Amino acid sequence: MTPVRSLARAMLSGIFVVSGYRNLRNPGRLAVAAKPVTDKVAPMLKKAHPNFPTETETLIRLNAAVQVGAGLMLATGRFSRPAALVLAGTLVPVTVAGHPFWNNDDPIAKNNNEIHTLKNLGLFGGLLLAATDTGGKPGIRWRTGHRIGHSRRSMQRAVRTARREARIAVRSAATARRLPG
């Protein structure tokens, strides 16, 4: 990994690690803002997994733990592409719960939340770039196509070789029949 990629990933992941750690330690400060979102998500979680916890503070802690873990993976370059996708997924509830500018009547609060929403959209875009970054190496799609092409060419060579050997065998058999003996 190049130094620029390493630095960029560390810089991008920093906010997730720090805020995730803070939210993991003190989820209560976000509970009031997160409650409307968790109340809407809880029935879906219960339906998908009956034993899944749906308390607001527990979901905040879970999201925070995921942010810390995925942030560290992105920063260290371990499974950085999946980690970037996971972090992008954690931004959605954070933005909806934490920065609902569409609900603000106060122009200052609305402006502040709009700025944070745009910041999160920028982070989301950066995470999408990180999720598609192959580090200068060919992606899976190219490698798969290259392997298929290589296999196809190998098979064609094998068929040509088999045909040539069959023609040689036929000629040898015909020559052997003509010889007295």
Rank of each mutant, 00 (worst) to 15 (best):
L24C: 03
G126H: 06
A8L: 15
A34G: 01
G122R: 05
M11C: 12
V4L: 14
R164F: 15
G89V: 00
L24I: 05
I15F: 14
N104C: 11
G149K: 02
K110I: 14
Q156Y: 00
N51K: 10
H99R: 04
L121K: 04
M11Q: 15
V37M: 06
R177M: 14
A83N: 06
P100Y: 14
V32Y: 06
N23T: 01
P3A: 08
T144A: 13
W102L: 04
V96Y: 13
T175S: 11
V86I: 14
M155W: 01
H146D: 13
T144W: 14
V37H: 06
V37L: 11
G136V: 05
G135F: 10
R9D: 15
P100A: 09
A84C: 05
L118P: 00
L179N: 11
A173H: 13
A65F: 10
G136K: 06
N112G: 05
R25T: 12
P100C: 08
A88V: 07
N23A: 12
V86T: 09
V68F: 13
M1H: 13
R167G: 11
H146F: 07
R5Y: 01
T175E: 11
N26K: 09
A33H: 07
A174K: 14
V159L: 09
A173E: 14
Q67I: 00
P50D: 01
G181L: 12
A130C: 07
W142P: 01
F101Q: 02
V86G: 05
T161F: 10
A34K: 02
P82L: 01
P100M: 09
A131N: 03
P43G: 00
P180M: 01
G89Y: 04
E114V: 08
G125E: 03
Q156F: 00
L7Q: 11
N23Y: 07
R163V: 15
H146P: 01
F52G: 02
L127F: 09
V32F: 03
N111K: 11
T117R: 06
R81W: 05
V41R: 00
A34V: 10
S151D: 02
R167H: 14
L179G: 12
G135A: 09
S151A: 11
A166E: 15
P107W: 14
A97S: 12
T132E: 02
N111I: 01
V66L: 15
A75K: 06
T76P: 00
A88T: 07
P36D: 13
L127C: 06
I168K: 14
R22Q: 15
L85F: 09
T76A: 14
R22M: 13
L45F: 04
S151F: 00
R157G: 02
I60N: 02
H150W: 13
P93T: 08
G149I: 00
T134F: 03
M1L: 08
V4S: 13
E114R: 11
S172V: 13
